[in-house]
């Protein structure tokens, strides 16, 4: 099989006989949660607790995924509340 530089993923995909199920599941789950979080933040800036309530998702999962989205440059940190406890988060414009 001829391997074209810059298109080697196809080579490994064919050699391995496809993509591992776990990798596909991980991608599906991350895409689903990313969509939920970005849609929830599209309307208003929210804290993690507010996001967890709105999406009916465990707050530790919101922390993990939201902080990942901050790292990936899709979400930015907003202001902290009056009690200095919870930050709000907003979409990066």
């Amino acid at each position: 099989m001829e391997i074209e530089k810059g298109k080697t993923a196809k080579y490994l995909r064919e050699k391995a006989g496809g993509v591992p199920e776990q990798a596909k599941e991980n991608l599906k789950e991350f895409t689903r949660i990313k969509k939920l979080l970005l849609e929830a933040l599209a309307d208003e800036d929210l804290t993690i607790k507010q996001l967890a309530d709105k999406l009916n998702m465990p707050s530790d999962e919101v922390v993990y995924h939201l902080m990942s989205l901050v790292k990936y440059g899709l979400v930015v940190t907003g202001e902290i509340d009056d009690m200095d406890e919870y930050f709000t988060y907003k979409l990066k414009k």
């Binding site: 804290t47 993690i48 530790d60 919101v62 922390v63 993990y64 406890e85 919870y86 930050f87």
Partner: peptide, 10 residues
């Protein structure tokens, strides 16, 4: 900043 991983509280 430093946050609780459970709910993002400082």
């Amino acid at each position: 900043t430093i946050l609780r991983p459970g709910d993002g509280k400082v």
